[in-house]
């Protein structure tokens, strides 16, 4: 476990992990948005990679991916972007969120070497379930990267216990069935699921998918160690698209006040 993960894991805060799409709406904006998120108190950052066929994502992140693709953003450039973020002073763990086909085409080994040298801390592959992840898991350990595990309310009990025990970085608990995107309500019985995950996990247990308001986030404090917000933030970036391209300073200010309105005061 590297130093950035240690800080993350030892934090006593209700950990905030935002997701943004690399290259949305342009590379420099991604850098400044990442730094702004850290200033607002993010404990880690998930960086998405644009993909033509993102089958775990809802419309908001699909559109962000299209904008990233229009900027010719790809997996290799996303990893190199992390090196630039480190140069600009970003200190929190960064997790690359990529579909498996992109990894395969770049080459798993090439990706892992590049990621290790660029200051990446973890990888999350939404279409690579545990059953198919043996090789990548092994290679990630060799390169000091955490392969982030996703567990769902539909994950069977024994598998949930095993994945929770073996989790690295953090354990990603999906709040509800379906793709990423804003939701008005969550699944009944979610607390039991989170409790079961926490019982076995050595790493912080984070809840994600569908969280978009302070009230929703507060609802999970106590049953989890942190939360992930993706679509709601990406939607705000979409709203600010033109300003992020032409009047960035102003846009970042607006963005930061939005993030502050989202976060429970005690999570910072």
């Amino acid at each position: 476990m590297n130093k950035r993960w240690k800080v993350f894991q030892h934090s006593s805060d209700y950990r905030f992990t935002p997701y943004i799409m690399a290259g949305d709406p342009c590379e420099e904006a991604t850098i400044e948005l990442s730094l702004a998120l850290e200033e607002c108190g993010a404990h880690a950052l998930e960086l998405g990679v644009p993909y033509s066929d993102p089958l775990a994502d809802g419309p908001v992140i699909q559109r962000a991916g299209m904008r990233g693709l229009a900027q010719n953003m790809n997996l290799e450039k996303t990893v190199k972007l992390v090196a630039k973020l480190r140069e600009r002073g970003l200190k929190i763990p960064v997790i690359i969120f990529t579909y498996y086909n992109l990894l395969l085409q770049l080459g798993e080994n090439r990706f892992l070497k590049l990621a290790e040298n660029s200051g990446v801390d973890g990888v999350l592959v939404p279409d690579l379930p545990y059953e198919e992840s043996g090789y990548l898991q092994e290679m990630c350990s060799e390169h000091n990267l955490a392969l982030i595990s996703l567990v769902s309310p539909t994950t069977r009990e024994e598998k949930l216990a095993k994945l929770s025990r073996e989790a690295e970085g953090f354990l990603y608990c999906i709040s509800s069935l379906g793709v990423t995107g804003v939701r008005s309500e969550f699944r009944a019985g979610l607390d039991d699921f989170l409790k079961a995950a926490k019982r076995n996990s050595r790493v912080p247990v984070l809840v994600g998918f569908g969280l978009s308001t302070r009230e929703q986030i507060q609802q999970f404090d106590g049953s989890s160690d942190g939360f992930i917000v993706g679509s709601a933030i990406v939607k705000k970036i979409e709203e600010l698209e033109s300003d992020l391209l032409t009047n960035r300073e102003e846009a970042i200010k607006t963005f930061k006040s939005y993030i502050e309105s989202l976060l429970p005061v005690y999570s910072r």
């Binding site: 498996y100 279409d127 690579l128 379930p129 198919e132 996703l150 769902s152 539909t154 994950t155 379906g178």
Partner: peptide, 10 residues
């Protein structure tokens, strides 16, 4: 193989 989100593995 099965390259799908964890939610539908079961």
């Amino acid at each position: 193989g099965k390259y799908v989100p964890e939610t539908i593995m079961f």
